[in-house]
Structures are given as structure tokens and as C-alpha cells.
Design a protein around this nucleic acid. Structure first.
Lengths: 212, 212, 212, 212
DNA sequence: TATGAATGAGAATTCATTCAT
DNA sequence: GATGAATGAATTCTCATTCAT
């Protein structure tokens, strides 16, 4: 399910033309399947409510492999967080001011409603793990600073604190939306498309993050 | 055994008539202590990560009383949710449009940062319990409709769907802020006062919920 | 099974009659039952091969109580070791030289063959737990020094090192006997009585620990 | 493919004539490496506390090879026990009475303190495996009978039972010493040399096993 | 009403072993 | 012959809940 079988088959037939669809033992693929499944469950159910068995079942692999590849449930969570951070940085880093609404909307609505929820939502699932909290906080900081500087502001301006606060409110809004979409079927928000979100998000960012 | 709690309470107040403040065995007091403690822990740690023992300890009462008064952990959560809903309705119901930012700011910052977090954050802690989810969804719906109608809009207008969506985004922002403040020490957002929040929230609501 | 119900009943009626010590659902008794069962299994099977379920079943109580009363399997082991150390100190502390063989024999054969094996055997079951290892080593040291000094020797004599070594060999012999009796049905050693052991042990101690 | 290991070895030594020490794929070498590593870990940690991965890592080979060569962890243990029994028989079989202390001392101290512990200690690590227990008991029996007969005694003498008991006590002492040396750093016993042990062991055997 | 004891279900994790390459 | 992937059975521990005072 998680693993796309068709793409896999294709790749496979390229590699071992005579023996298609027979790749059962692939460490990296297993790892990724676990990572995807974990992200889904962690964001929709929260860290504590998610069992490793849930994740393994959803990934279609044996539970013990979670410990093999990620040492522990916490390790898996940290890996999810790291991946989410990377993804966020890639999507939002260096986006010009006018593109921010689109970027946020894409981030929120990127992968459908509940199928593969936005990385944003993951940033609020606390695990009680210190290391994970640090990662989370780091990503949040980075993201809000990116937003703050997108308007062309510098960190040493007199009202930089205010700007940062407003950027964090934008971030909070984005996360709030992602959460309401992934955990609660609150209509119409839950079923909006990326397009639907751009206009209100533009109003929001324009109001909170006025360019120079 | 004793089925009627009120009758019992009456008897009790008779017994301790001389010292009405100091009642060691006071059902309603115990109930309230549990409710407060539960709200704190549920919002800061999430439903699943909170143990009934945590709550009981924080409330300073015996664990078994949770089951006595609320039948189960889920029952306690539902009770918290109900109380949060009531509180929200009281705070945000019928607020005139211009007062919305203040109302939201107060709601968010009402009780300090982490000491007694806003009810808003509770609205996203899912418990996996169907009844609780219904309550939650109900409260969220009500709140967003209140916001939508605050601008003087009616539910049967042609663009009512859009208005509702925008109201839900405002709500999402409010919840996002509450969450970032209660679960993560993201500065400066985490330490802002009610006053600090009003201006940006005004900008936000003005942009998203234009009055007629 | 382990806990003698009749003895318990008797004690109980005694206790509740005049003694202010009341035992309701009896935590201390449960604790002791666990301690006894644990000592049996740890000595006969070793730490790692013993499951907490084995112990709980043998004690006739629920598994979770092990964690309740001793925090962990390791905690229970440490408690056993501590109790064994106390018991050893009580039995062997300050025993005059001529009584040593009897003391050792009693210690070894004290409680039958396998029913409640000697504390001695426990002193060799390593758990991999650092704290437990320290306790164990402390008890072993104490016991060998007791033996060394029983012959009237002082720690500052020129050959004190030799004396201590010989005392440790006596101790090793005692432990070896206890082990061979508790873990392996090596006949005739496994079924000897306390009396049977005294004569050979006297020869052994006389040969290794010559009095001044 | 290659069935005959000796043929293989021959071929091998031909092939790697210039570097006879370094053979990567050598069944008997791998087998022996596993056997040595297993003996070390089993004696120092006990059967249950030793993982097959520990052993394989220490031997520098893949884990699966344990099952390949010894069918199971228990099989490996039995093999160790068998090897230890052979070794013991070789060392102690037919030793004249006066040489017994030396033989025991050598056995105990043979291979340093912890590096390659005495086979003696292995004789007490129970595995819960019936076959292994039988082997163990057989070895212990054989050894004690050897000791008993070393004094020139016959099995049909009137006090043969007593003699056997005393021989078992000597054996118990030897095992006790080996254990205290391999598992616990009890000084000075743990660091004594073979020479240091001979004198006390002579006193011990003389006292317990008087020759005819 | 309140409390500590007790319980059973379920959680994460470890580990010997087997499979496929 | 050797290796890394995968698996299922256990094991320890936690936790909500119930029981007995």
C-alpha cells in the first residue's frame, strides 16, 4: 500500500529483467516504508497513541525491524522529525515573499488530506523525548526566521522581535490548519484543495508580514 | 451504595457546619480538582501520554477517584472537553466583530503560558474515543460558525462556504498559537502577553473576516 | 503454595487481636513471598534464565507487583542479594573458630536441597547490573574477611594476604557446594544433611585456616 | 559443494601457501573460533545472558553460522560442554594422587583470569537443556570419581560413599574458585597464579582425600 | 468517601532462528 | 561458505481499572 508497487515493479524489471516483481528483501525500501507509515500515524494519532505495531502493520513489515533500523520508537520519531525538517527547509527555504502563500498551501495540502499528511503537523506531536524536542524546536525556529526574513527584514531591525512574533503566528496558523485537516474532519477546511487555500493565505500573510 | 450525591453533600455540610471551608471529603471539590489537573496534563502532554496517576497526583487525590467520578479516563477527558466547550462558548459567543481579536487573545493567553493552558489546545488532543471526537468536532464547528457570523454574515449567503473556511482558518491560527505556547517554548511567541497578541490578531481577523 | 496459608491465618488472627500491626490485603506478605520465590529461582536458574513471570507464579501473585514493590527485575535481584547478605552476616558474623564448620554446614544445608536454597549460591548469579555486582562483591569480601579473622589473625600480619586467600578458598568451597546442591542433582553431595557436611568441612577449615 | 574439509584444507594451504595464517573461508577454523568465543562468554556471562550475536561478534563471524555449524545455541553449548569434558578428562584422568593439587591449580589458572576461563566454570552454567544437563552431570560424576579413586580407593569399599562425597567437595571447591575468579574480581583470589594456588590446594586435598 | 492492593491487557523491545542472495 | 534481511515468540514493564477495607 504505502510502497508503490507499480513504480517498484518498473524499477525492478529494469534491474533484473528476467525476474520481475521479486524484490522482497530490500533494506532501504523497508526503511522508507517504515518512515512513511510512521509519519502518517504519528501525525494523525500522536506519538503516544501510536503503537509500533500499528506502524509496522501499515508498512507491511515485521515489528522488530523498527528496532533494527531505528533502534527504538523514539529513534523512529526523531528520524521522521528530521525528514520533515529537511523537507520543510527544501520547500520553504529562500522562497520569495510573494510566493509564500503558495508555498504554505502546497505544504499543507501537498499530499491529500489524510493519506500522507503534511510534515507541519508532525512538528507538534511531542514525544517526551528530549532529543526530539530539540529537533522540533530547531525546525520551528528555522521556519519562523525564514518567514520573518522573507519580507526583506533583517534580524537587527528595531522591531525585529515583533516581526518574528508575527512570523510565528503565520507558522502557527499553517500548523493549525494542517492539524485540523489531518486529525479532524472539520468541513470545509478538511477537504480544501491547495488552490482553495492560496487566497486566504495570501490575505493572512499580507496582513501579518507586510513587506518593507 | 450511596446513590444520590446531592443528598449526601447536604448531609455533609450539616456535619461540618462549623468549618465550611475545610471539607476533606468533598465530592465536588475533588471533582473540580481532577478536572483542572486533567485539563492541564491533557493539553500539555496529550491524551495518550497522560496517565491517570499523573492527574490524580497533580490533583492531590487518590487515583481510584477518577473512575469513581468520571467512570474512566475517557470519561474524564470528555468532561474536560465539555467544560472547555462551555468556556469557549461563554467567551466567544455573541462577541461583536470588533471585539474578536481581544476575545481570542484573552482565550489564548488567559491563564499564563503553561500553568493553566488555554482550552483551545485541548480541542486537538484526540483520544481515539468516538464520543470525545464528536464533542470536539461540535465545539470546533460552533466556534467557527460564531466567527463566521460575527462579521454579520448569514449562513445562506452565496459565499457562505468561503466565509466559513476563512473563519476556520482564524480558528486554526488561534489553536496553533495556543499549541505552540503550551507545548513548545518557541520564543517570543511562548512568552507574549494578551496585549502583545491583540494587534497581530486584529490584522489577522481583519484580513480574513472582512465585515460586510 | 509458597506462602503457608495456615500459618498465615493463625498469625493473622493473632495480629488483629492484640497487635496494633494490621495487615489488610497485606503488602509486606506479598513482598516477602516475592522475595522468597525470587531467591529460589534466581539461585536455581540464574538471573537471566529466570522470568519475572516464573517468580510471580511461584509466589502466587500478579506479575505487575514485582514492579510495584521492587521497581524492576533488577531491583528484585538486588533486594534478594541484600537479604542474602544480611542473612549471611547474621549467621557467620562473629562465629568462633571452632564453630565455623557447623555454621557453614548450616548455611549450606539450611533449607533442604532445592526448596529454599542457600543464600550462598545467590552470590554468584551475576545479573549484569552494576549495583548488584557491588552488593555481591561487598558481601563476598565481608564473608572472607570474617573467615580470615576467625582464626585470630589480624589484617596487619605479614602473611595476612595468604590468610585472606585461604579464607576465600574456604568461601569458594562453600559456594561451590551450595551450587552443586542447588542446581545439579550430583549425588551423594546433593542429598547430604547438615550433619554429613560437618566432618569434611571441619577437615577443610582446619587444613586451610590453621588457628594461631 | 566441497564436502571434504580436509581435502579443502589441503587445497587451501596450497592456494595460500604464502600466507598460511590467513584463510577467510575455512569451516573448521570458523567452528573453532565460535567454540572458543562461546566458552568465554558462556562461562563469564552464563548461558542465558549470552546472546548468539555476542558470540558471533567475538568470533568475528556471521551469526547465522552458529546455526549452520551447531544447529542451535543449545547445540553450541553442548559442544562447549563436550569440549570442556574432554579437556578435563585429559587433564585430570589418571593423575597420581600427589599430583592432584597441581592438576587442579593448572586447570583453574590455566588461561589467565578472564581471558580464557577454566572449563570448570562452564560445568555450572545451566542452559535448561536436558541433553546439556546430562553431559554436565556426566562430566561432574566422572571427575569426582577420578578424584575419589586417586587416593587408591575402590568403589566397593565400605566407606566409598564418604570418599565420593569428599571428592565432590574437592571438586566443588575447584569449581567455586574458578567461578569466583572468572565472574567476580574478588581479590586476592582473582589474581592468584597457578603457583599461588598449589599450596592451599595441597592442604585441601590432603585433608579431604587422605590416601590409603 | 477514600485508599492502597491487586489485576489483566497491552506496550516496546530483544533474540534465536530462518530465508534469500 | 557466508551474509544481511526478516520473522515470531518471548520478556519486561506500564497502566487503567477493580477490589477490599
Amino acid at each position: 500500500m504505502t510502497v508503490n508497487p507499480s513504480a517498484r515493479a518498473t524499477k525492478k524489471s529494469d534491474a533484473t529483467a528476467g525476474d520481475p516483481q521479486r524484490r522482497r528483501r530490500d533494506a532501504t525500501r523497508t526503511r522508507q516504508a517504515l518512515l512513511d507509515a510512521a509519519r502518517r500515524r504519528f501525525t494523525s494519532d500522536g506519538y503516544a497513541a501510536t503503537t509500533v505495531r500499528d506502524i509496522a502493520d501499515e508498512a507491511g513489515v515485521n515489528v522488530a525491524l523498527i528496532n533494527r533500523y531505528f533502534a527504538s520508537k523514539e529513534g523512529l520519531f526523531e528520524a521522521c522529525l528530521g525528514a520533515a525538517g529537511d523537507e520543510l527547509r527544501r520547500t520553504t527555504g529562500g522562497v520569495p515573499f510573494t510566493q509564500i502563500p503558495q508555498a504554505i498551501a502546497r505544504q499543507i495540502a501537498s499530499s491529500g488530506t489524510a493519506d500522507l499528511p503534511s510534515e507541519l503537523a508532525l512538528l507538534l506531536s511531542s514525544s517526551g523525548d528530549t532529543r526530539a524536542d530539540e529537533i522540533r524546536l530547531g525546525v520551528l525556529h528555522y521556519a519562523s526566521e525564514q518567514l520573518a526574513s522573507a519580507g526583506g527584514r533583517q534580524a537587527d531591525e528595531p522591531d525585529s522581535e515583533t516581526i518574528l512574533l508575527r512570523a510565528q503566528i503565520v507558522l502557527a496558523a499553517a500548523i493549525g490548519i494542517a492539524l485540523l485537516r489531518s486529525s479532524t474532519p472539520l468541513q470545509p477546511l478538511a477537504s480544501t484543495t491547495e488552490q482553495d487555500l492560496i487566497a486566504p493565505l495570501r490575505d493572512l500573510t499580507d496582513a501579518l508580514l507586510p513587506p518593507r
